[in-house]
Amino acid sequence: MRRLAIILLLTIAPVAVGAIALGAYLNFGSIRIIYIGLVHSRFDQLANRIGSDIEVALSFGLPLAGQDTLTPLLSREQSNDPLLNSIDVAGADGKVLFSSDPNRIGTDIATLDGTVDVRSRIVANDFGVPVGTVLARGSMTRIQRQLDGVAETVERTAAITGLLAVLISAIVILVPLRAFYAQALGAARLADDATESADDAFGWAIAEVETAHAAITARLGDRRGE
């Protein structure tokens, strides 16, 4: 029984733990996707609005490089959102013309930065020709920090429930297994040709057949005597 119990525990407990771990991962993963989706959505809205303002100015004949009012606008919008590193407006050559971060002016937007989450919007003139790009650059570190609290809660809850699940699984397996094993050992009397009684839950059928057979044997023996 010990070996069977170990096999059952070693096979079922990991399934329970795996299911809980996967469930926890799905929970956190979903919240992460939703949260980042919300953040991206508002970055997109912001980039769209700024892009639309630029295109209106372009349609009045004001070239992109001449739209100096962008700098205070970008600074104001960036200050409203703590998750933003900067908001940039780049020209057609990919060089930043305006930015909420003065250090970024003149840099190339194609330069990769793994710590930044970028949402962008192409700006086009009235002929549909792209003339620039608006980039809302979010800080992945700050975004992740927002999620850390949720991650910690999920991990803690999963660890506690996982541990409880293993303990309860062990009890759930061992208690009925012991009862089953005891019942199986008790069935030894059925194998030992012991006399069964009619109210024996397992032996009643054997008892009834043996009784009937004995009666029929006796009658057939009497008839032979006749």
Partner: peptide, 17 residues
């Protein structure tokens, strides 16, 4: 277990969502 995890996640997540 999964219900508890989902409930705790949702309660905590409301704080950022």
């Amino acid at each position: 277990a999964l219900a508890v995890i989902s409930w705790r996640t949702l309660v905590t997540a409301e704080g950022i969502l």
